[in-house]
Write a protein that binds this DNA or RNA. Sequence first.
DNA 1: CGCCCTGTTGACCGCTCTCAAGCGGCGTGG
DNA 2: CCACGCCGCTTGAGAGCGGTCAACAGGGCG
Lengths: 242, 242
Amino acid sequence: MNVAVRPRVQALRQAGEVLDLADVTTSFFPYSEAVIVSYAPGQEVVGEGDPTDNYFLVMRGVFRAVKVTRDGRRQIFAFYMPGDMCGLEPDDTHGLTIEAVNAGTIAALSRQVCRARMGRDPQFNNAVFDNVTRALACAVDHMTMVGRSSAEERLAWFLWMLGGRARGRRPASVELAMQRQDIADYLGLTIETVSRTFTHLKAQGLVALPTTRRVDILRPDLLERLASADRDAPIRSARAVC
Amino acid sequence: MNVAVRPRVQALRQAGEVLDLADVTTSFFPYSEAVIVSYAPGQEVVGEGDPTDNYFLVMRGVFRAVKVTRDGRRQIFAFYMPGDMCGLEPDDTHGLTIEAVNAGTIAALSRQVCRARMGRDPQFNNAVFDNVTRALACAVDHMTMVGRSSAEERLAWFLWMLGGRARGRRPASVELAMQRQDIADYLGLTIETVSRTFTHLKAQGLVALPTTRRVDILRPDLLERLASADRDAPIRSARAVC
DNA sequence: CGCCCTGTTGACCGCTCTCAAGCGGCGTGG
DNA sequence: CCACGCCGCTTGAGAGCGGTCAACAGGGCG
């Protein structure tokens, strides 16, 4: 585990590896004590039940928020990408486990310092508040999918959402940072159903899979139609925390 | 629709109709312009797509946050009780419809004034921030149930959660403010499955239903075990009533 | 080459949905 | 007072989607 302090933030920013939102937020860190930590794939940032000492800001890579029941059932609540904040809990222990999906870097912010800063700095407070309400809005869509949609619709929505999070225009191809089990646990399905549904989408000509981790979107129109069980909703901001 | 202003808050507080949390929050309203509105059962507070002009604080009654797809599928994201804030959206339109489940009263707070006040008043900011992160934490459990549990587990969890929201000790009996369709849409089930599952829980002796709207919890131990999505857990003592 | 890990495919089963009928409380009106 | 209709809820029969269990495929790597 690679631990460093402040200068790392500058280095990452100068390297252009950090997205805008992270950039905006990190501009507030000189006042607190951000600890930058790098994680290997699968490594745990915090576990369920750990004390809520820190809030986290993703700098690089993809992280996942996981809830595991005692008998082993697993639900992924969100994937966090650069610029996303996570670990904001109401109580003094974490209700979720946060893990690195692949190699990534996270900034740990003292919860206490963070809260104090929120009280003093409206701009920072707004950024955090916006992040949390955005996470809530995303959870609404996520839950509607998990609760009310077919496997095909869920996967289409997932791919559509990933495409929407890219910078700039919606890409014709999305990279899957996570493996099938993570997708299944995010969508409330089994790994077999995810696999079969990919096959089905391929057979219909909606997507192609040059590799297991890359999805070419051949028919964005049809994919979107499947994805939007709610077609009236305006397309959410591409930066939504999902 | 009954509209009044500030004095109504005082009246309600003096009448003891408002819970502590609402009370704490309303103490900040003299500085903003709270508009108190009463709603009849089923009445809409805001609809999906409406501009995000206000945040809302439930004063009395139960409200629901609903997402409806074009083809009529319905998912309830949350039930709000006195003291809960809702309508906090990141963007300038609501992503959810908020409706009264039964007769209730809500305080509408100008979003702009509210945000400004959050920037100036750390105590108010903390109250709001706590409310939002709590909503997130609740969504995690909710999603885990919808995504990974059987109908029986979902309903058990729902009843267990309602019991946990009561003031003081966990009650032996809970009142269902909402009808079966709302429970179904909250849990991602159909009304028939909810009904059958109630029957099943009755047959097992876990609960009794003196009326369709009241549930006596006869075996809290077994209900909790079902609710905690832990099929492997040993059966706890029948006398372990919280 | 052979092992391991991830992903795919197949066969079968069961939970929940769908469609449909029946029930019971309550308000209305004769 | 009872008859009637409405609405919310329950119950039943049958079907289908996705879960479960199991075998297989393919790529990476020692």
